[in-house]
Every structure is written in structure tokens, then in C-alpha cells.
Nucleic acid binder design. Structure first.
Lengths: 198, 198
DNA sequence: CGGTCTCTTGACGGAGTTCAAAGCTAGTGG
DNA sequence: CCACTAGCTTTGAACTCCGTCAAGAGACCG
């Protein structure tokens, strides 16, 4: 495990879980990766900007949110280390993002530009397959999230969140978790109190 | 428009909107398509079966739903003509489906088997690209649906449904629409009454 | 006709929101 | 190293949206 991660960047390891690549292809991808560091509260993307990179998180946690008509931040996605984080809508259409993406902790990312990615798609068809399968899996996961989000109670959602992100609750402000779960901070507070007394 | 649709099957037209294919590639795809007819209430897929085909709807409307622990049908997806309908989870993993898929009207489909699709992916890399882009767009659409589903009221969801499927309300039973929106039939009835008195 | 499926209406209850206030925590500058 | 402030978290009361249960009225099909 450790060795694999030392041999290649974790991003490449992530790709190798799904498709095989030879040394040359790996080198080609790695040559295009840009390392970026963010401080807590730094923005990776703001509403209105165009999302120019695919981002793979090496360290830290990033939240995607938009601001609703009442000025409230609505978290749509939380991404922890070794996950991807970007506004695919803006990235692929080239249109202004509707989302903010902000680091909730000091973070370190690998970035791949749109131009480099298109070049890589031409050169390495297996990468096209990688993203097809990744999007396919993401779709399946989202379908489940839609179903759960609509039919489960907030308490069930919260318990599932704790399973999925075991330590995140201690690392980031509670209000982001409440927003991600689709409930108010106050109600999450009540839920936690109820669960503690059981 | 009409001519295009006569020249190739609507499924091919759907693909050509995203990637270019030459005559030979088109012929190769079309040779693999199976036409299937369903009567109203027929099942395209039942829970527990493996989803063996990708389905493209030529005519009619198909609902995907699962049955919850209380025995209620929960509609997760409504697909109208010229859209795709399948349980991608089951289709790609080969595991038993968790969804039912049922025709709500007499329907006509084009089907593509898993084996044929894999063969086509090898032979026509552009098809891999087509599905990557389609899944990408589906992901974007679902992200929006997750956000809306969580933050909009049932009335807003209902109004958006009417925009997206202008005539469907007249063609299928109301209970499927209520279930798709994540509300009870009774409450949808109340909403409609309120909207009519405005 | 008669039965089943579909749609509406109303009374009541519960999950979750809003508003407001107070207690806590952590980072900042002196 | 302490004090201060801004942000974070909890608590409670009143209110809203929507679900459940129950009953009845149409509408369609054999």
C-alpha cells in the first residue's frame, strides 16, 4: 500500500484501480500534474469563474457550495483526501461556475488542466475509459443519494454521514455538515443531543 | 429533422448529437439493436433480475421504482421517448437489480446487450467517448436534482416537473408523479388545488 | 351494471425550520 | 499570557410543511 503510493502519485494509483497503464502512459500523465497548496478558507473556485482544472485532493478537505436566494451557503459536496473535486458543469462547458469550492483545512491538490486532459484523452484512450467508468460509478452513487436524501430521515442521513466520513466531524465546522445533510445547524445540534442520551 | 430521424434510428441520431461516426460505424451499431415492444404495465426489469440491456425509448414512458420497507413504490426516475432507461448499477456490475422498471404506456424500445456494448466499445472508441460525455451530463443534471430535491419546496418541484415533462401529467397516473417528486399523492392533489385557485 | 383504480378533501400529528438568546471556543493582538 | 472578539454550538418556543388515516366521489373496463 505505502509502496504503491510512493512509487506513483496517489492520483495515478487511483486511476490504476480501474484501468491498466504502462510506464510511458503513467509518465505522460504525471508530467502534466500541477501541485497546488491552499490555506484553510482559500477558494479553489468562486461562483462566476470558469473551472479550469480537474482537482485531485492529496491532503485536507474541500467543500462545494452555492449561495441561495436568501444568502445562505448550501453545501452540495464534501471531498476528502484521495477524492476528486471540481465543478464538472463549468469544467466541461466552459461556462461560469455556479458553485464555490473552498478549502475547510489547509489542503494540497494535484491539478490537470482542460487542455492537458483533452490531449491525454487523444493520446491515452484508456483514460477515456477510466473517466467513463468513474462517472458511471458516481452516477450510481448519486442515484442512491437521491433516493436516500428523499426518503430517509435526517437522523438516518446523519448516521450514514458519520460512517462515510468517520473523522470529518471533528475536523470541520458543524454547519457545513448540517448544510451537506440538508438540515439546519440547530436541528443537527438537537439530533446529536438526542443520540448522545441513548 | 424528420429526415435525419428517418435516415438513422433515433438512437443513432442521439449519439450523433455528441460524437461523429462514419457510415460503417453506424451500420455496426444498428446491426446490434434489438427492437422490443411492451404493453402498458409490462415490466422491463424486476427487482432481483440482472439488467442485461441498455434501453433507448422510441415510444411511451417508463418508470423506475423500488419498493420500500413499507411496501410502497418509490419512483426514482421517469423516462420519456428518446431517452435512455436502465439500471446502470445492475447493468455494469452484473448484480441483481434493486429497481423495477415498468412501462406506464404501451412502449417501444431499442436494446443493446452488455456483450454487444463491450464489443462496440472495443471497436468504436468514439462510443466510449459518447458514454463518458453522456454520464458526465447525467451527473451534472443529477447534481442539480439533488440540490433542488433538498432545498426546494414540493410546489417548486412540481412546477419544474411540469416544465420538464409538459404533457406527461395527462398521460400517466398522478401517483407516479407524486412518488417521483417525493411527496404523497394526497399532498400533490392539495398542491394542484392551490395552484388552480391562483 | 359492479368493481377496481384514481383523484380529492379534511382532521390531526410529527419532523424540521425560523427566530432569538445565551454559552462556548479559538484565534488575535497587546 | 491574558483579554477580547468573532465565530461556533446549543437550547427553547412558535410555526410550516407535509405525512397518515379515513372517507367519499369519479372514471374506466369487463
Amino acid at each position: 500500500m505505502k509502496e504503491d503510493q510512493n512509487k506513483y502519485s496517489p492520483l495515478v494509483t487511483n486511476i490504476l484501480e480501474i484501468v491498466d497503464l504502462d510506464e510511458q502512459e503513467i509518465a505522460c500523465i504525471e508530467s502534466r500534474l500541477i501541485t497546488t497548496r491552499l490555506k484553510k478558507k482559500d477558494y479553489l473556485l468562486r461562483e462566476g469563474e470558469v473551472c479550469k482544472h480537474k482537482n485531485f485532493i492529496l491532503k485536507g478537505c474541500v467543500a462545494a457550495y452555492f449561495v441561495d436566494e436568501n444568502g445562505k451557503e448550501r453545501v452540495t459536496y464534501l471531498a476528502d483526501r484521495h477524492h476528486w473535486a471540481n465543478d464538472i458543469y463549468s469544467f466541461f462547458t466552459g461556462k461560469p461556475a455556479t458553485l464555490f469550492m473552498q478549502a475547510l483545512e489547509d489542503a494540497e491538490l494535484l491539478q490537470l488542466s482542460r487542455a492537458d486532459l483533452d490531449m491525454l484523452f487523444e493520446k491515452i484512450p484508456k483514460l477515456e475509459r477510466f473517466f467513463r467508468i468513474r462517472y458511471q460509478n458516481a452516477l450510481i452513487a448519486q442515484e442512491r443519494r437521491i433516493i436516500q436524501g428523499r426518503f430517509d430521515t435526517a437522523e438516518q442521513l446523519y448516521l450514514q454521514f458519520r460512517k462515510k466520513f468517520p473523522d470529518l466531524e471533528l475536523r470541520i465546522p458543524l454547519k457545513y455538515i448540517a448544510s451537506y445533510l440538508g438540515i439546519t445547524q440547530q436541528f443537527l445540534s438537537v439530533l446529536r443531543a438526542n443520540l448522545a442520551n441513548t
